Amino acid sequence: MNRARLGLLTGTHAVNDLYQGLLPALLPFIALERGYSYTAVSGLMLAAMGLSSVIQPLFGLYVDRASRPWMVPLGFVTAAIGLVLVGMSPDYWVSWAAAVLCGLGIAAYHPPATVAARVAGGSSQKAMSVFSVGGTIGASFAPLLATAAVGNGQLHHSWLLLLPAVVMLVVWTLWTRRDVQNTRSAMASPAHTLKTTQQTNDWRAFFLLCAVIVGWSIPYVTVLSMLSLYVTRELSGSAFMGAAALTTLTAAGAVGTLLGGWMGDRWGRIPAIRLGYLLALPAMGGLAMASSAEMAWACTLALGVCMFLPFAPQVTLAQDYLPRNQATASGITLGLAMSIGGMVAPLFGMLSDAYGLRYTVSTVLCVLCAACLLAWCMRERAYSPQRLAAQM
Rank of each mutant, 00 (worst) to 15 (best):
L174C: 08
W175F: 13
W175T: 14
W175I: 09
T176N: 11
R177W: 09
R177I: 05
R178H: 10
D179F: 03
D179C: 03
Q181P: 07
N182G: 15
M187F: 13
P190N: 08
P190L: 08
A191D: 14
T197M: 12
R204Y: 11
F206E: 07
F207Q: 10
C210P: 04
W216P: 03
S217V: 02
P219A: 03
M226W: 08
M226R: 08
L227S: 05
V231G: 02
T232I: 10
R233I: 06
G237A: 01
G237T: 08
G237N: 00
S238I: 00
G242H: 02
G242M: 07
A243R: 01
A245D: 09
A245K: 01
L246Q: 11
T247I: 00
A251K: 05
G253I: 02
V255E: 00
L258N: 01
G260V: 05
G261P: 00
G264Q: 06
R266C: 04
W267D: 05
W267K: 05
I270S: 00
I270K: 11
P271G: 07
P271N: 05
A272L: 03
Y277I: 02
L278A: 14
L279W: 03
L279A: 13
L281I: 13
M284I: 12
G285F: 15
L287N: 07
A293S: 15
E294F: 11
A296N: 03
W297N: 10
A298S: 11
T300M: 07
L301I: 04
A302E: 00
V305G: 03
M307G: 01
M307H: 03
M307R: 06
F311D: 07
